[in-house]
Design a protein around this nucleic acid. Structure first.
Lengths: 335, 335
DNA sequence: TTGAAAGCGCTAACAG
DNA sequence: CTGTTAGCGCTTTCAA
């Protein structure tokens, strides 16, 4: 059997209270402390987190909700958050929700039963009630990569509107007039699309609703299909802004299938600057998110809330940066 | 405060024992059961997993060790394992070890303190002592995507040797005689390389040690550099077998930088058939792993061991499949 | 400084 | 079928 605090106490010839004290390094006589330490080492004692959490201490584990761990951008975020968690002595239990409200509710409920110290919700969510409830219960939560204007909730994200605006402005500055956009359901996509529209308006260009496409599926095949429809239009766009790099890859595949040269026949811009954008041919113009900063800040914010250090809620918005590579150029004169 | 079993008992007018019994659906009088259920619903009661685990029950959480969650192939595995975990009522706490023995030891120790029910170790590990110890303690563990011949441990993986053999045979059948291989430190890479060597020998082709390269870093830049060295050899290989798709992308980048056409000047084969191999240009010939089967089987095996249903250890080996795409062709006559 | 003892929320005999 | 009670391993008063 695993040694318990009793075993250590017996071995050291002290009471369990004393052992507990050295565990939590409170004031203990030097000699007792020494004996206890010895005993612990001898028995290879490790305190049970369960037992200590049951008495009100924390579990040092965080629930991490995200739409889909198989998405490379999300996976990278998860990795960064985990790095920070590691540094600060926490573990992550990771849950993919697929944007399904039931899954979100299920996971939150289960993780509460498991007494996680708090939640990070990355990449958006659907079930607002669940989050609202968490907030009402004063449960520490922070949103990563998203925000929710109508909720008083901590969040860390990039300025998506601005990202979309910059991409579109860049494209119009190259001379593109017919620019399509393809996004996801997440609110971050919506923001990017708003930025896209604003940029068009600011350039006095018309906003064509049929050039705005939302992909409900994340898998690349369906994106390819959607992009294909865009390209098969009688007057196809000369540029497509994809709201993330995966979508952009889908567009690339669709273009390739139709023998449209990139960027000669079609300019493509992605978002996120994952390594997908580098490995693609041609390498993608995209928008860089400061992933590490986003993740670290989100995590630190959560820990602050857990430790009750800061009661004030905040929305942190970092700035994205356009990375110009080879997938964009001026449109061909008169196709 | 969150309601406890006492609150429910009081509300229902029964003892906590009765409540506990309905919780674990043991025999309880119909009327009592009804009252308890009502009370639970009314109070919105959710039992504490901590408390029940403290009395010897399971936590239904699994420790999932992997080298790096940011690696798309690994992330996809994680996702599949998580899917299965969800179906079976488990949670995953995910830990990236970066192949660092200290991290492996740290995480295992911490997760044991948190009373996880078992471990899945995916993609290899370095710290053999830690795993051995787990085994000695009868801790449920299964290896995913790897095996460890000298250890009596459950594992589920693909036949890496065969994968390497098939790739190489395919390449020689196209006429390649000078084939390089680039792998990682993980034992799966080693196996694939063994298969590569065997295939060469079976074709009476010489094995050049300088054409066998191990990348200690996973980041794409360093792979690119290594591949570059290979390509800059006075007599460069006409084909390169990369032990996974990321490595293959690194090779593609290196080749592109040197204006070597793929597959005309250089054939490239990857491994894993992630969507990287599809999105690359040209799409990569690669080896498909039945990821879902691997993950589900591994998880089920672990659960069986946790539930004590099967005491026998097993090594499951599934068969990989070569997927031929556009990155391979016969070598040019007399470069 | 140290220790006895109560209690965290739940399970599992064991009586009744 | 139901309830009493003694733990599970740890923390935390409160006395000594």
């Amino acid at each position: 059997m695993k040694p318990t605090i009793y075993d250590v106490a017996r071995e050291a010839g002290v009471s369990i209270a004393t052992v507990s004290k050295v565990l939590n390094n409170q004031r203990v006589g030097k000699k007792s402390k020494e004996k206890v330490l010895q005993a612990m080492k001898k028995l290879n004692y490790k305190p049970s987190v369960l037992a200590s959490a049951l008495t009100g201490k924390q579990t040092s584990t965080i629930g991490f909700l995200l739409p889909d761990l198989a998405n490379p951008f999300i996976a990278e975020m998860a990795r960064r958050v985990e790095d920070r968690a590691y540094e600060r002595g926490y573990n992550l239990v990771i849950c993919s929700t697929d944007f399904e409200p039931e899954k979100e509710a299920f996971y939150v409920s289960l993780l509460k039963q498991k007494s996680v110290d708090g939640f990070i919700i990355a990449g958006g969510f659907k079930n607002v009630e669940v989050v609202t409830e968490l907030l009402e219960e004063q449960f520490p939560v922070v949103l990563l990569g998203e925000s929710y204007p109508s909720l008083s909730i901590n969040s860390v994200k990039v300025d998506d509107f601005m990202g979309g605006y910059e991409v579109t402005s860049f494209l119009t500055s190259l001379g593109h007039k017919k620019i399509a956009v393809i996004g996801e359901e997440a609110s971050s996509s919506q923001e990017r699309i708003k930025g896209y529209k604003q940029a068009l308006r600011d350039q006095q260009l018309p906003v064509h609703e049929e050039l705005i496409v939302i992909s409900s599926q994340t898998n690349i095949e369906s994106v390819e299909r959607l992009a294909g429809k865009l390209l098969d239009l009688p007057e196809p766009p000369t540029a497509i802004f994809a709201c993330n790099d995966i979508l952009a890859i889908g567009v690339v595949l669709a273009a390739r299938q139709r023998d449209r040269r990139i960027p000669d026949h079609l300019s493509i811009v992605g978002f996120d600057n994952t390594f997908l954008s580098r490995s693609s041919d041609p390498p993608l113009t995209t928008v860089q998110q400061p992933i590490q900063d986003l993740c670290f800040q989100a995590f630190d914010m959560l820990v602050e809330e857990i430790q009750g250090k800061s009661k004030l809620r905040q929305r942190v918005v970092l700035l994205p940066e356009l990375v110009v590579r080879k997938s964009t150029s001026a449109p061909r004169k008169k196709s």
